[in-house]
Computed example of a mutant assay.
Amino acid sequence: MSDFTIDWDREARTGVAEAVLCDGKTPAQIAAILASAGPRRLFLTRLSEDAHGRLPETARARLDYDPLSRTAVHGEPVAPTMPGVGVVCAGTSDLPVAREAARALAFAGFDAPVIADVGVAGLWRLMNRLPEIREQRVVIAVAGMEGALFSVLAGLVAAPVVAVPTSVGYGVAEGGKAALSSALASCAAGLVTVNIDNGFGAASAAIRIFRAMSRDMSEKQNSA
């Protein structure tokens, strides 16, 4: 009897495809999951370079692995073409989480730009990229330290903003708790928050928001 069950119907049921959290799984377990997938596509998160390197060569050959985000795509690649969701990243140190979100979006077919190094310590950097950010229908904001980007950005754009606190920081900001508190305590109306370092969760929320908005617009056009 297998010790895992893949939810292949999740995308049809929820709009977000199944993903495999590799943290806590042995290379043998990950390899077994990949073997069971056959040619079907899977998105893997938290796959360390060490675990990736210990997978059988046949398994690694079927993976598009990104060491920065520790994500991998199993199966045939699909070119992301759908616009509308963007990822805004406060600092270069936050890029692993931002890349996780962007890769999860790409897996779902979204051509999501990553607008990096626009933390509010140099507010001009954010303002220079604001026209590009305002083109997005949903924005994922990724920041560590004090998490000031969340409130500032949510006060400047009309799109829904999904905040992702990261564990980047030291002292009172260590572990992402300060950024998480900042996101949860924000006075910017409509800002929503996912867990620390949860780029995949933010991407999943953005996909659901985007598709709900698109469905509503389609229904309005059909009834007009």
Rank of each mutant, 00 (worst) to 15 (best):
residue 1 M to D: 14
residue 3 D to C: 11
residue 4 F to V: 10
residue 6 I to G: 12
residue 8 W to K: 10
residue 10 R to W: 06
residue 10 R to H: 07
residue 12 A to Q: 15
residue 12 A to R: 15
residue 12 A to D: 14
residue 13 R to H: 11
residue 14 T to A: 05
residue 14 T to Y: 13
residue 18 E to L: 02
residue 18 E to H: 14
residue 19 A to D: 01
residue 23 D to F: 05
residue 26 T to W: 07
residue 26 T to D: 04
residue 29 Q to M: 13
residue 29 Q to S: 13
residue 38 G to N: 14
residue 38 G to I: 07
residue 39 P to A: 15
residue 41 R to E: 06
residue 42 L to C: 14
residue 45 T to H: 04
residue 48 S to M: 09
residue 49 E to F: 06
residue 50 D to V: 13
residue 51 A to Q: 09
residue 51 A to E: 03
residue 52 H to L: 10
residue 57 E to F: 02
residue 57 E to I: 12
residue 64 D to A: 14
residue 67 P to S: 14
residue 68 L to C: 08
residue 68 L to W: 01
residue 70 R to P: 01
residue 70 R to S: 04
residue 70 R to W: 05
residue 71 T to R: 07
residue 74 H to R: 10
residue 75 G to F: 05
residue 76 E to Y: 05
residue 77 P to T: 09
residue 79 A to Y: 05
residue 80 P to K: 12
residue 82 M to A: 07
residue 84 G to K: 02
residue 87 V to H: 01
residue 88 V to W: 03
residue 89 C to W: 03
residue 93 S to W: 02
residue 95 L to M: 15
residue 100 E to A: 15
residue 102 A to I: 01
residue 103 R to A: 05
residue 105 L to M: 00
residue 105 L to I: 00
residue 106 A to C: 04
residue 106 A to G: 06
residue 107 F to T: 00
residue 107 F to M: 06
residue 108 A to R: 12
residue 109 G to Q: 08
residue 110 F to T: 03
residue 111 D to C: 15
residue 114 V to H: 04
residue 114 V to A: 09
residue 117 D to Y: 09
residue 120 V to Q: 11
residue 121 A to S: 13
residue 122 G to Y: 04
residue 131 P to K: 11
residue 133 I to Q: 01
residue 134 R to Y: 09
residue 137 R to C: 00
residue 138 V to W: 02
residue 139 V to C: 00
residue 140 I to S: 02
residue 140 I to L: 02
residue 141 A to D: 09
residue 143 A to T: 04
residue 143 A to C: 12
residue 144 G to M: 08
residue 145 M to A: 03
residue 145 M to V: 14
residue 147 G to Q: 12
residue 150 F to H: 01
residue 151 S to G: 12
residue 152 V to N: 14
residue 153 L to W: 12
residue 154 A to Q: 10
residue 154 A to S: 13
residue 154 A to V: 08
residue 155 G to N: 15
residue 155 G to I: 01
residue 156 L to D: 03
residue 158 A to S: 12
residue 158 A to P: 01
residue 160 P to S: 09
residue 160 P to T: 08
residue 161 V to E: 05
residue 162 V to I: 15
residue 162 V to T: 01
residue 162 V to H: 04
residue 163 A to V: 05
residue 164 V to D: 00
residue 165 P to Y: 03
residue 166 T to N: 08
residue 166 T to S: 09
residue 167 S to F: 01
residue 168 V to H: 02
residue 169 G to Q: 04
residue 170 Y to K: 11
residue 172 V to S: 09
residue 174 E to T: 14
residue 175 G to Y: 09
residue 179 A to N: 12
residue 179 A to Q: 03
residue 182 S to H: 02
residue 182 S to C: 14
residue 186 S to M: 05
residue 187 C to D: 05
residue 189 A to K: 13
residue 190 G to F: 11
residue 190 G to E: 10
residue 190 G to A: 07
residue 190 G to K: 13
residue 191 L to T: 07
residue 193 T to D: 03
residue 196 I to C: 02
residue 196 I to T: 12
residue 197 D to V: 09
residue 207 I to M: 15
residue 208 R to D: 05
residue 208 R to H: 07
residue 211 R to S: 06
residue 213 M to G: 04
residue 216 D to T: 01
residue 217 M to N: 07
residue 218 S to V: 00
residue 218 S to C: 10
residue 219 E to W: 07
residue 220 K to V: 02
residue 223 S to C: 10
